[in-house]
């Protein structure tokens, strides 16, 4: 982890890029029993929530677009475990998992999905647009890549204020080809902003595989022209994510500027609800699910170490299902927004 950039005064140019800085993915650090159980519960909540969202979509309660996070749960969960109070998160439209990770209310998220008045955006944002200043969650953005510049701006505000907070800016392998991502990389590095660029590489930008859309498929290299170091992380292993998160948050808090984490992950479902995902084989999906499943990995360790038995894990599942059922119940029965809401929140 030694780097010439580390002690460089702000005005001089760092002498090394990410690769020569010798940064490599930290080894996953074993979790304690509490950490394993916490990660299990958090990931399971996202999984069950998304399954329920898919079901409610099928029933017509959720309209428009609905992009499920199933399969990628370890990414937000491990990163959240590395945060301190006041750290911010921003992402694109596959955002339900990020909101739950940032502890936004499941009822509020689900009721927003159904477009009801109790939704986090009072029914006016929908699946892709939810925010919580209180929980430091800055959306939920529907324009691919826009959140990268916005997240850089959040980090700018942290540096302007001289606080110790970092901004997690998530985007996918698809967004990683947008021009404004590189404009943001340049400014973030130039100004040493405390931002972690987290590229969730789930292998498909909608239906286009990374090899068909990206000249450089090692996304950890994408910051090389801007002297931003990058690390490839096993995004299916929550311990690996947490270890990378610890390294990255420390890097940013030390004033070393931005860092890229390429999370190698996988989305089990289609891009959105209407995507039959014919661009990949069933075997590929099945192989990931059975061999790399993020929740199953934690479950296996818990059982293996005898930190929990099947009954205890079932109880966790039951508890999570109850939270999700309550959220779904609320989201289906809550009233639609009052018609007067049409005209509110346009300008202050």
């Amino acid at each position: 982890m030694a780097t010439a950039a580390r002690k460089a005064p702000a005005k001089t140019k760092p002498k090394s890029d990410g690769k020569s800085a010798g940064l490599s993915a930290p080894k996953p650090v074993d979790f304690t029993k509490d950490e394993e159980l916490d990660a299990y519960r958090r990931m399971l909540l996202i999984r069950r929530f998304e399954e329920k969202a898919g079901q409610l979509y099928g029933m017509g309660f959720i309209g428009g677009f609905c992009h499920l996070y199933i399969g990628q749960e370890a990414v937000v969960t491990g990163m959240k475990m590395a945060l301190i109070d006041g750290d911010q998160m921003i992402t694109a439209y596959r955002d339900h998992g990020h909101m739950l990770a940032m502890e936004l209310s499941p009822r509020g998220v689900m009721a927003e999905l159904t477009g009801r008045r109790g939704g986090l955006s009072r029914g006016k944002g929908g699946s892709m647009h939810m925010f919580s200043k209180e929980k430091h969650f800055y959306g939920g953005h529907g324009i691919v890549g826009a959140q990268v510049s916005l997240g850089t701006g959040l980090a700018f505000a942290n540096r302007y204020r001289g606080n110790n907070n970092v901004t997690l800016t998530y985007f996918g392998d698809g967004a990683a080809n947008q021009g404004q991502v590189y404009e943001s990389f340049n400014m973030a590095s130039l100004w040493k902003l405390p931002v972690i660029f987290i590229i969730e590489n789930n292998r498909y930008a909608m239906g286009t595989s990374v090899t068909r859309s990206s000249a450089e498929t090692d996304f950890s290299h994408r910051g090389a022209s801007f002297k931003i170091p990058g690390i490839q992380v096993d995004g299916m292993d929550v311990r690996a994510v947490k270890a990378a998160g610890d390294l990255a948050t420390e890097w940013c808090r030390d004033g070393k500027g931005p860092l890229i984490l390429e999370m190698q992950t996988y989305r089990y479902r289609g891009h959105s609800m209407s995507d039959p995902a014919k661009y990949r084989s069933k075997e590929e999906v099945q192989k990931m699910r059975s061999e790399r499943g993020p929740i199953e990995q934690v479950k296996a360790r818990l059982l293996d170490k005898k930190w929990a038995d099947e009954d205890e894990l079932k109880a966790v599942d039951k508890e999570v299902r109850d939270i999700v059922a309550d959220a779904a119940e609320f989201a289906q029965n809550d009233a639609e927004p009052d018609p007067s809401e049409l005209w509110t929140d346009i300008v202050l």
């Binding site: 510049s149 959040l154 505000a157 404004q180 404009e183 340049n186 400014m187």
Partner: peptide, 19 residues
């Protein structure tokens, strides 16, 4: 830098954070 798209977004992000 000469990057209108990027710095407009950085400005909006800073504004969302209260600046």
């Amino acid at each position: 830098p000469i990057t209108e798209h990027g710095f407009a977004g950085v400005g909006v992000g800073a504004a969302m954070a209260g600046l």
